[in-house]
Design a protein around this nucleic acid. Structure first.
Length: 562
RNA sequence: GCGCCGUUAGCUCAAUUGGAUAGAGCGUUGGUCUACGGAACCAAAGGCUAGGGAUUCGAGUUCCUUACGGCGCACCA
């Protein structure tokens, strides 16, 4: 139940709309004051009375019931207390009734959200810098899907550009099939790195020629390129499946090449295209931005041009209500320009394009650099985290059967969680110390909490004890936990509205903390009465449900034992 | 130089979008077990929310300004 809506509906203040009351309702800093509060200061002018008086009058007029058990006025705040039993019945009913759908809604029914994320480059291995876009985008897909939207995950492959001419050139000079088959994508990357440091003028020219050959569909060049592409895709697929992300489309930049002329024509027809220093551009100086280059002076397209064509293609193909670009803030200007150009073209959906910007990853000794070999490969991070998880697991729980499976969930989960726990805009300095830390506010803590809850429920099942709502007055720990469980649907909504999965990660830790307090303070199986035991078991089950749903939305597995 | 973003406890970060006494984790110090799982729990210490101004009944949150840091600024992606 939405308590704020309930209160807003029943609180009558002349001249003040329900929506305004709903929006103004806040949560008091101390639960002893109440569960919701309406600050009355802003109504003082309207009523020409002191906020203290307004709060008192509203309090005296509000009729309490089985949902809102008491109302009080304190220093200009109107404080509401939710009936504990009523909340317990409602929350436990919802969580146990809906199970893995608890927190879901149909608010997005009939709407489509395109989410452009991860966007790997062909022939480049996955490094730690690619983690954010991948797990953020993956989480956003699941969150929007959970809210009833059709979420379309798009991997806008970096599969076009002169670098592939260089790669083929390097391969022809220094590579061979056997080595690449054996070394996989890293061997391919090594060739590319070598080209960048050793290539002669002649090789550069050769590389340009190879790129031209790819474009013109030359058999050998195309086959080589397709080979590198399939190597890359099978490599990233493994990582994607470990991170639990999926894509509905792998249409990359090369797909849009033949769609560019039409877009250029349209720009021309709308009088937006001008020539500047030999290039075709859209001038944006009146908006305080540098020009948007559509075609280079040699007539070739750019990344930006392909993005422009891709936006139109997506609008036509999916008729999205929103199209998100999960790309680092480095590209702020690029997206501002792109969106502005689409707006200037008169497309009303320009407003539906959103750059979901996130912070940059660097290493402790500075920025990453593939050329200098200063890179942290994601697979290495995953491997080390899973290894550590297994070591701890073996030590703490030697009899556990499926150690590898559990270690995978714990280790990979820690990596995902680490990337999703803070506000996405924050820069990250990667360190193995931090990545391998499983203490404190981590997914491991949440998973451990789940395992504890699952363990109690298992004992209960073995003893034939029921987990169901019972008519008891929740104590302080139980009530705090209930409120946390009840706030999950709001957390999911807020995560979607702000494109911020960290809201859900924070929710998970907060709720786990409250469950642990409850667990320590309240005997569950040894509760004083059967009724109380049933109630606490139900609360335990409800907690496990929300925590599982929260972690699942983030792409993190929940082991039953660990 | 211009633009965007950031700055909160020793460290890493929250703060329900302008509300009451700014909260967590790590680290430090001191506690809690003959146990429904100690990967836990409790407590203490730690803050002029980078500095200054403004708006407001009320500002970590909005505006202006300064400092520091990151990113970007024409044919790379």
């Amino acid at each position: 139940m939405d308590h704020k809506a309930y209160i807003a509906e029943r609180l009558h203040a002349e001249g003040v709309g329900k929506e305004e009351i709903y929006a103004s309702l806040a949560v008091p800093p101390d639960p002893a004051l109440g569960d919701y509060a309406l600050p009355c200061f802003k109504f003082a002018k309207l009523f020409r009375k002191s906020p203290v008086l307004i709060a008192e009058e509203l309090a005296s007029r509000y009729e309490t019931d089985e949902v809102v058990s008491s109302v009080s006025a304190v220093n200009g705040y109107l404080n509401f207390k939710i009936d504990r039993k009523g909340l317990a019945r409602d929350v436990i009913g919802q969580a146990l009734g809906r199970g893995c759908a608890y927190g879901a809604s149909d608010m997005g029914a009939g709407k489509t959200v395109c989410i452009d994320y991860s966007s790997v480059n062909i022939a480049k291995p996955f490094h730690i810098g690619h983690l954010s876009t991948t797990v953020l985008g993956g989480a956003l897909c699941r969150i929007f899907d959970f809210l009833g939207y059709r979420a379309v995950g798009i991997n806008h492959l970096g599969d076009y550009g002169t670098q592939f001419g260089k790669l083929i050139c390097a391969y022809k000079h220094w590579g061979n099939r056997e080595e690449v088959e054996k070394g996989g994508i890293h061997a391919v990357n090594d060739l590319y790195v070598r080209f960048n440091s050793e290539a002669t003028e002649e090789m550069e020219a050769e590389a340009r020629e190879y790129f031209r050959l790819i474009e013109s569909g030359d058999k050998e060049a195309t086959e080589l390129f397709e080979w590198f592409k399939s190597l890359t895709l099978s490599y990233v697929e493994k990582i994607y499946s470990r991170l639990h992300v999926k894509f509905d489309s792998y249409l990359g930049e090369s797909f849009y090449i033949d769609k560019i002329p039409a877009v250029v024509e349209e720009l021309k027809a709308k009088g937006l295209l001008t020539e500047s220093q030999g290039a075709q551009v859209v001038a944006l100086d009146e908006f305080g931005m540098p020009p948007f280059i559509v075609l280079r002076s040699d007539g070739a397209s750019l990344y930006a041009t392909r993005d422009l064509a891709a936006a139109f293609y997506r609008k036509r193909t999916y008729d999205f209500d929103k199209c998100l670009y999960v790309v680092a803030y480095q590209q702020n200007l690029h997206f501002q320009q792109l969106f502005k150009v689409i707006g200037l073209m008169g497309e009303p959906w320009a407003k539906d394009l959103v750059h979901v910007a996130y912070g940059m990853v660097s290493l402790e000794d500075g920025a990453m650099s593939t050329r200098k070999g200063k890179v942290v490969w994601l697979e290495d991070v995953l491997t080390r985290c899973v290894e550590k998880a297994k070591r701890i697991l073996t030590e703490k729980n030697p009899d556990l059967e499926n150690k590898d499976e559990v270690a995978e969930k714990v280790g990979v989960g820690a990596v995902i969680f680490g990337a999703l726990y803070n506000n996405k805009i924050k820069d990250i300095v990667f360190s193995y110390d931090k990545a391998l830390n499983f203490d404190g506010e981590t997914s491991v803590y949440v998973q451990y909490t789940c395992a504890r809850a699952a363990s109690v429920l298992e004992r209960a099942a073995a003893a034939g004890a029921k987990a169901e709502y019972a008519d008891v007055e929740p104590n302080a720990q139980e009530f705090e936990l209930l409120k946390a469980v009840a706030s999950f649907p709001d957390a999911v909504k807020s995560a979607a509205e702000n494109y911020e999965p960290s809201v859900i990660a924070r929710f998970a830790v907060d709720t786990a903390q409250k469950f642990n307090k409850f667990y320590i303070e309240c005997k569950i199986m040894q509760a004083e009465t059967d009724q109380l035991r049933a109630f606490r078991l139900a609360l335990t089950k409800a907690s496990l449900t929300v925590l599982t749903n929260a972690l699942t939305l983030l792409g993190i597995g929940v082991p039953e034992k660990m």
